[in-house]
């Protein structure tokens, strides 16, 4: 079978196209999306420079890059099906023969593609303005970055099924999750490892979030001045791959379960009768 006639790939590509087109069709979105992550990372960089080690400024810039993706996962992945449900798109998905995992994967890839320009802008601006000292090992950076995004977006897929089940207040849940997850994942500072300000129990709990492992792995691969790494880089890469796989399978099963439950209870569409 030719690749382009594979329904799974066709669906995934179409969903990717919709997501990316929404962003690239309006180039100003990139400028708008870059604002908050950039200014936040700028502020934290200034905190590092004003009160401590300017060498740590790179933590905050990397944080600005990754927070763009985390925001995208939360607002455009986790709660997307919930919004699709409100406008009647979700029932179109379900009543079509399209595999729901293809829609999720397409949505993720489209999200990554759509977020990449603003994340890149944060990185470029940060590095141009602050020039933090880094010694990257690029093959490791690329591998770890890809695995981090894979596990992060797989988490988004898993969250999307949770939101479908309990997501009447999707916006509020997003607002409530955004900052705490950024905090324990150590988006702007190492929350795990030798220089983490957190006690061991908190670090252990934080390690269950893919973003935590991903941030630590990225800091290691970029050659930031970290005194003690959390765990060796190759183990973190393995953990990330495993997390991505588990979350992908979990989300697929959860969505199948919720689809069946929704058909039983009548909750696939918002309209009840």
């Amino acid at each position: 079978m030719k690749l382009h006639s594979n329904p799974w790939l066709r669906t995934a590509y179409a969903r990717l196209w919709v997501r990316a087109k929404s962003i690239y069709g309006e180039p100003l979105w990139v400028a708008v999306n870059v604002g908050f992550p950039f200014f936040t990372s700028f502020s934290f960089t200034m905190v590092y420079r004003a009160y401590g080690l300017g060498a740590y400024a790179g933590f905050a810039i990397l944080g600005g890059v990754m927070i763009s993706f985390w925001g995208n996962v939360l607002w455009s992945m986790a709660s997307q099906f919930n919004w699709d449900k409100q406008v009647g798109l979700f029932e179109i998905y379900i009543s079509s023969p399209a595999p729901i995992t293809a829609i999720l994967v397409g949505m993720s890839l489209g999200g990554i593609l759509g977020t990449a320009p603003s994340a890149a802008m944060v990185a470029i601006l940060g590095w141009v303005i602050f020039a933090p000292p880094i010694h990257p090992f690029w093959p490791a950076v690329v591998l770890v970055f890809s695995l981090t995004l894979a596990s992060l977006y797989a988490m988004g897929m898993a969250l999307s099924s949770l939101y479908l089940a309990y997501g009447r207040e999707a916006d509020s849940v997003n607002e409530a999750l955004h900052e705490p997850v950024s905090l324990i994942s150590g988006v702007y500072f190492p929350s795990v490892g030798g220089i983490s300000p957190f006690p061991f129990a908190v670090q252990a709990a934080a390690s269950l979030v893919p973003l935590t492992i991903g941030m630590d792995a990225l800091r290691q691969s970029l050659g930031f001045p970290i005194k003690v790494a959390f765990i060796p880089l190759y183990i973190e890469a393995l953990i990330l791959a495993l997390m991505a796989l588990i979350l992908l399978l979990a989300s697929s099963r959860a969505l199948r379960f919720l689809e069946n439950k929704g058909r039983r209870t009548g909750s696939i569409a918002v309209r009840q009768r």
Binding site: P7, W17, R271
Partner: peptide, 27 residues
């Protein structure tokens, strides 16, 4: 359904229809 207005706002009508056709694997 007449009550639905399902579509992606920032995509053209043609783009939306193409997207929906892909859910059915149509070239």
């Amino acid at each position: 359904s007449g009550a639905e207005r399902a579509g992606y706002d920032f995509i053209s009508a043609r783009g939306n229809l193409w997207f929906f056709s892909q859910l059915y694997g149509i070239p």
